Amino acid sequence: MHIAFLTPEYSHPNIAQSAGIGTSIKNLATSLHKSGNNITIFIYDQPVQEIINDNGIKIHRVKGKKYKFFGWYLYRKHIQKYCAQIIHQESIDVIEAADWTGITAFMHFKIPLVIRFHGSDAYFCHLENRKQKLKNFWFEKLAINKAQAFIAPTIFAGEVSKRLFKIKGKEIQTIHNGLDISEFENKEPGNFEKHTILYIGTLIRKKGVLELPEIFNRVRNVLPEAKLRLIGSDSFDIKTNSKSTWELMKNLFTKDDLNNVEYLGKIPYNEIQKHIKKANACVFPTYAETLGMVTIEAMAMQKAIVNSNIGWSQELIIDEESGYLVHPSNHDLYAERIIELFKNDSLVLQLGKKARERVEEKFDINSLVIANINFYQSIINPNKKTT
């Protein structure tokens, strides 16, 4: 097969923007290519127009364009025209797009379109209990209507998206995002910096980072030597219109606690593993997610994790077996779980070992790629049964 992905981000040294979507697509694309399939990546809203050959995977950077009027429509049609040309030239069989912003709303392809629920604006607004702009919902709904089928990284994400967009008569297949677990080894899980908490992800309200100052304060009331390390891009805050969520966070820490907080900002992806290895515990108190790639990466590296307990998280971690699940607003219990880990190294190793086993069982890309291939084949040849 020849499979294409239309995406706003992708994990590659030349591409500045890449988070969970970019990482998950990169993992899948690489595994699909290794399985003998041709892969083309279309990345839109790029600063330059160029084609990159990434070890046999062809990456098309589609330059962003400005229009005086109707840019939301005309740029989508520009992307469609470019993709259609390559689809014809390269005999691409199926194209997959993300749900975010409904990028395919006004696009028409002669091949099947699959949408993967990485997380639409409608989905995140629903989880955060905030009102979505009608225009944004309209774009995403139009895009959903044009897709032949859907893939959800968790049952939770699929069911919520199905309700929000009133999807009927079309298949929603749950296939977890995966990673190449051979690239996430931790040969010394017992070697870590005592009493160090690590958060990795964008500093944004929906990720629950504004809960961390209260949680951290409760931890330090018991263990004053505790440290909090934060890694990830800063972002605009939609509720307060602040340009910096980090500035909001700093105002929530006590002065004494802030002395034990280290914010590294965004760092190269290849440096993140060393920080995961050094952490005593990793925390992900997010309110809105579809799966959480960095959580899986930390689990693969045998880290003890305190995660959100909302919906999708229950498909990642078995509470008290492969990590802890706690609601982000429950500051007392969240801190209590962290303190438990800090006081018990054998518990840290036990949870970390089970976390690794969980990833090997559920999130190994080498197993998940087969499910993806079978799904694409069923869409391309709907009358042909796959095994």
Results as ranks from 00 to 15, higher is better:
Ile79Met: 06
Ile79Asn: 02
Gln80Asp: 10
Tyr82Pro: 05
Ala84Glu: 15
Ile86Glu: 05
His88Pro: 00
Gln89Trp: 06
Glu90Gly: 02
Ile92Ser: 00
Val94Trp: 12
Val94Cys: 10
Ile95His: 04
Glu96Lys: 02
Ala98His: 04
Trp100Arg: 09
Trp100Gly: 00
Thr101Ala: 04
Thr101Val: 06
Thr104Tyr: 04
Phe109Val: 07
Ile111Gln: 10
Pro112Ala: 09
Val114Trp: 03
Ile115Trp: 03
Ile115Gly: 02
Ile115Leu: 01
Arg116Pro: 01
Phe117Cys: 01
His118Ser: 03
Ala122Thr: 08
Tyr123Ile: 04
Glu128Trp: 06
Arg130Ala: 05
Arg130Cys: 13
Lys131Ile: 15
Leu134Phe: 15
Lys135Trp: 14
Phe137Glu: 13
Trp138Gln: 13
Leu142Arg: 15
Ile144Tyr: 02
Ile144Glu: 01
Lys146Phe: 04
Ala147Cys: 07
Ala149Glu: 09
Phe150Gln: 04
Ile151Ser: 10
Ala152Arg: 02
Ile155Asn: 12
Ile155Phe: 09
Ile155Val: 13
Phe156Thr: 00
Phe156Ser: 08
Gly158His: 00
Gly158Leu: 00
Gly158Arg: 01
Val160Ser: 07
Ser161Trp: 06
Phe165Asn: 01
Phe165Glu: 00
Ile167Ser: 04
Lys168Ile: 06
Gln173Ala: 14
Gln173Arg: 15
Thr174Glu: 15
Ile175Lys: 14
Asn177Phe: 12
Asp180Met: 07
Asp180Tyr: 05
Ile181Pro: 01
Ile181Val: 08
Phe184Gln: 10
Glu185Asp: 11
Glu185Pro: 03
Asn186Val: 10
Asn186Arg: 11
Glu188Trp: 10
Glu188Pro: 06
Pro189Trp: 11
Pro189Ser: 11
Gly190Ala: 15
Asn191Val: 13
Phe192Trp: 06
Glu193Asn: 08
Lys194Gly: 07
His195Phe: 14
Leu198Thr: 05
Ile200Pro: 05
Ile200Gln: 06
Ile200Asp: 01
Ile200Leu: 14
Ile200Asn: 03
Ile200Arg: 03
Gly201Glu: 11
Gly201Asp: 13
Ile204Trp: 07
Ile204His: 13
Arg205Thr: 14
Leu210Gly: 05
Leu212Pro: 07
Pro213Ser: 10
Ile215Glu: 10
